[in-house]
């Protein structure tokens, strides 16, 4: 009965109130204001008029430019997420099998970039991709993998690769965490029953780390779909995604209501996707992995 919570402490509201007030004042109210803003009217000469209209939403709904842009945003996000899963999950597994000093060193090398400025990392890709004679193309051609340079800069391919690099640590971390819960003896058990290495990975390891891959995938997807700096630098001015478009509307065109509508739509889409896939994963894996 030692788990019985001591009751003689001050009420938690006293501890919670400062943070709660802060969040109501500086998160909930601004978000509500942004939603309101998306219904306001904007004119080239009149600026923002505080009226309630559906014009911005109708424009996004009917203009194929916005359809294409949102489609591109999610296409890039899905591709980058798949790339991180395909590379990050095996790497986490390999990492987990390494011996003591190397394990820590490589974990640091792979996870460390997470904390390095996105601008600096994306700049690195811009240098690697840079034009027809970028370092990446030179290297790929010299090992005979390709004959002609691939255009990376200002293309979706380039944005996807750079985004996958930026988000990779999240995937490795998520799968790594799942691997820590796997009984280290389980592979030996499978081996003793006659399973080969590939069978062990496919039948024993993969099912156990699947929740990690999926939850890592959700994180990576939501970050990719709302990414700003990487698509802006690698994609350039023409390859617009939701975040860069909203930025343009706000700071170049100055059509705040339209920008707010794009942002609110992006937020709603991401929240919807994240919440529903979380729920799906939890339902699917709730019993097996408590």
């Amino acid at each position: 009965m030692s788990a019985a919570a001591p009751a003689r402490y001050p009420v938690p509201w006293k501890l919670l109130l400062p943070a709660l007030m802060l969040f109501i004042a500086v998160v909930l109210i601004p978000l509500a204001m942004t939603i309101m803003l998306s219904f306001h009217k904007w004119g080239q000469y009149t600026g923002i008029e505080p009226v309630f209209i559906l014009e911005n939403w109708r424009e996004i709904w009917s203009d194929s430019y916005f359809h294409e842009m949102f489609l591109r945003t999610f296409r890039i996000a899905v591709a980058a997420t798949l790339l991180t899963a395909i590379c990050g999950a095996p790497e986490a597994y390999i990492l987990n099998r390494m011996r003591a000093p190397w394990k820590g060193i490589f974990l640091l090398i792979i996870l460390g970039p997470l904390l390095i400025s996105v601008v600096a990392r994306t700049l690195g890709w811009a240098l690697l991709f840079g034009g027809q004679n970028g370092i990446a193309n030179k290297a790929l051609m010299s090992i005979g993998l390709i004959d002609t340079p691939i255009p990376f800069m200002f293309t979706e391919t380039g944005v996807i690769i750079a985004l996958a690099h930026v988000m990779m640590p999240f995937m490795v971390l998520s799968v790594w965490a799942a691997l820590q819960r796997v009984d280290p003896q389980i592979e030996n058990a499978a081996m003793s029953l006659g399973a080969g290495p590939l069978t062990i990975i496919r039948r024993i390891i993969l099912p156990q780390i699947m929740p990690g891959i999926l939850s890592g995938g959700i994180i990576v997807f939501s970050l990719c779909a709302s990414a700003f700096a990487t698509p802006a630098i690698i994609g350039g001015r023409r390859l617009k995604v939701a975040a860069t478009l909203a930025y343009d509307e706000f700071l170049n065109t100055l059509n705040w209501p339209l920008g707010a509508a794009v942002a609110v739509l992006l937020l709603m889409a991401i929240v919807l996707i994240v919440v529903s896939s979380n729920a799906l994963i939890e339902r699917r894996y709730a019993e097996a992995f408590r």
Binding site: A4, P6, A7, R8
Partner: peptide, 13 residues
């Protein structure tokens, strides 16, 4: 028994 002790100590009412 532990709950009894904690009531004497005052951590449980």
């Amino acid at each position: 028994k532990t709950t009894t002790l904690q009531m004497i100590a005052g951590f449980v009412d």
